[in-house]
Amino acid sequence: MTKVRKRRILLYAVLVIGVVPTLLPFVWLVRSALMDNNQMFIAPPQWIPRPFEWSNFSGALTAQPFARYFLNTMIIEVFTVIGTLLTCSIAAFSFSRLRWRGRNVVFGILLSGLMLPQAVLLVPTFLMWDAVQAINTYYPLIVPAWLGGAGGGIFNVFLLRQFFLTIPYELDEAAYIDGASPLRVFWQVIVPLSKPALMVVGIFTFIRTWNEFLDPLIYLNDSSKFTLALGLASFQGTYNAQWGYLMAAATATILPIVVLFFFAQRYLIEGVTLTGVKG
């Protein structure tokens, strides 16, 4: 009993101690975002901003058009998330619930794309978009999402397929006997039952798109078309010694994702468990 008790105390101690290095960079980020330049460079470092320099936020976010970047990012997000959800789930439906010749072979081939380092495709994909004069537009960032999430998107198909396989097939059969088409079965039977899995894919796609840097960097030239990630990188290039501004801008790009995560957490945990990401 005492041994068990000792072990529990140790467990809590390690959990609590581990929190320190995990959260310290966040504390450092936020304190720097709220500190004026006089206090920022005092040694040893101070932790509580005095006064709270909220002007870092207003200053940073107006020094470059971050509102515009935010809007641009959201436009890309909307099209990317909808496209990914639609085409990935429909492909997953076909790969899990419709029987057609060569289905498993095709799925295996598509899945092998996961092993393909995306960086390898950089040059030819760029040249392809260049050939159709789509450089400096959002097409290169959005269109792949409408084709089964192309590239790494097949992982979503895999995830959704795993989930669809757990739904009893009798439901489909009943609908078919009533004369439903596969598309209708997908839309009225499978989709309503798969909300947790779709939620997970949607949220992860949102986060991934939010973080995306290399593709926007290559395809977008006009600063008026920049995404938040790209805007922050260019901001960093210009204001590279203005740490208050930089931390405020960084905080502003992190915050929406953290807020989203807090709202979506329940679905994520539920969904990750349900889809059972296992080797």
Partner: peptide, 16 residues
């Protein structure tokens, strides 16, 4: 329908 519904993903794989 099977092939038809898988088509976007297949095209995506081929093109991208």
């Amino acid at each position: 329908w099977g092939l038809l519904l898988a088509l976007p993903a297949i095209i995506g794989f081929v093109v991208f």
